[in-house]
Design a protein around this nucleic acid. Structure first.
Lengths: 225, 225
DNA sequence: GAGAAAAGACTTGTATCCATCTTAGATACA
DNA sequence: TGTATCTAAGATGGATACAAGTCTTTTCTC
């Protein structure tokens, strides 16, 4: 079992994890052109699993593969960050709308579940844990709509956003976040869909602003119009 | 240049196209477990590009890869079909909302563009052309929102739907479709966002029904609630 | 005949090899 | 000095070889 070929996790997964981590922690900065052989050497594996990882990362929007040239770490512009958040708002609003149509009890049930969520409190959580909790909080809301396709799309969005928020270190205003989470849960509990969507919009507007990006008219109607 | 290795398009693309086509025209029915070597042999290429195609198809949700077993052609259930259409409605509604916020003129411009689209008339089009036109029509609407992330998500949805509609042969009611398209364009032209969204919802409700699937409460509030 | 063990066919995962393409840098020339 | 060309290095795309896992079928034992 000491053989080098015997490893716990598949090489392709290790490659994927390695590159993704590097992307998130900034080891591979925006615009960098990296090659299969490079990371293959670093991980002491062949190019094949690295290739697989690159393809995955490309489909997730982290890399752009140029034929015979290399893999570009796609730069994330302010516009793209806003686009991601807008898309999140669209999908989460859909979830709220669908819950509303299914009836007040369905909404209230989700509201209760969310109110009890750690992301509504936030004490006793490290920054990393808070980040995980935040993600779980929103995922819970979206999943509650019972549309697996939307849930899927939403998760890919969060992956994209992870890259963005780590690129521009967010100084997360935890109080604001937990407070807004609680407000959202409360609105759902009360069966007020429109109010919930408004809370959500303001919450996400806060997120883009924390990135130092203007919300734009859709996220921030008060500014543009 | 006559060598067999010199081919116009990359082998990986050919493999991708081949499998996707097979998926859409039903050559690879739901639940089938296909293998890399199989299609590699059929296309007279090595497994490597086929593997690449499989990974792509998996990320698009057409295949599910089971380690050391094969690639499962994911079955599309009625529920999933509805989920896809719901997601489409969510994203297209987002597009309308965003246009509305950007102002009446922006909306009207899109309305004019859509009104002039072949998918609003439909004469002189074969069924295949009509299908393409329909897709372009909706893509135009979504793109007009100016959110590339959403546009991207939307396109993957259409790919998914392509698979569904081909699985269950749709008897497309062309008149209904073109008429509803025109109605949508008109509502946009008039700057009536809510009306446009309602038209859109009914349009997509017609689509699910054409597939022989109930709309469910979200697409068809009149039924459930 | 029934059940367990083993053999075989078939699958993917990974490494390695070769061909081709792209590009950076050296070199020749005006 | 500036430019064109040639050369070499490095990249990917694809083919092939081999290792290892999974399921099916056969065979052996009781």
């Amino acid at each position: 079992m000491s053989s080098a070929t015997a490893s716990e996790t598949p090489a392709a997964d290790r490659a994927y994890q390695h590159v993704k981590t590097g992307l998130l922690d900034g080891s591979f900065p925006d615009g960098e052109l990296l090659s299969e052989g490079e990371v293959a050497g670093a991980l002491q594996m062949s190019r094949t699993p690295v290739r697989e990882a690159f393809l995955r990362l490309q489909s997730e929007g982290f890399l752009k593969l140029y034929p015979k040239r290399g893999a570009l770490v796609v730069p994330v512009s302010a516009g793209e960050a806003r686009a991601v958040i807008e898309a999140r708002l669209a999908l989460e609003s859909f979830a709220i709308d669908k819950l509303a149509i299914e009836g007040g009890e369905a909404m209230a049930a989700v509201g209760r579940e969310l109110a009890a969520h750690p992301a509504c409190d936030g004490t006793d959580l490290t920054d990393a844990e808070m980040h995980v909790a935040d993600r779980a909080f929103h995922a819970t809301l979206v999943s509650a709509a019972g549309n697996p396709v939307v849930t899927d799309l939403y998760n890919t969005l969060r992956d994209k956003q992870m890259r963005i928020t780590s690129t521009a270190r967010t100084h997360s205003a935890r109080e604001r976040i937990t407070h807004q989470h609680a407000g959202l849960a409360e609105a759902l509990n009360a069966g007020e869909a429109e109010q919930a969507k408004k809370q959500l919009r303001e919450h996400l507007l806060g997120t883009v602003r924390a990135l130092g990006i203007a919300g734009g008219p859709y996220l921030d109607p008060a500014s543009g119009a």
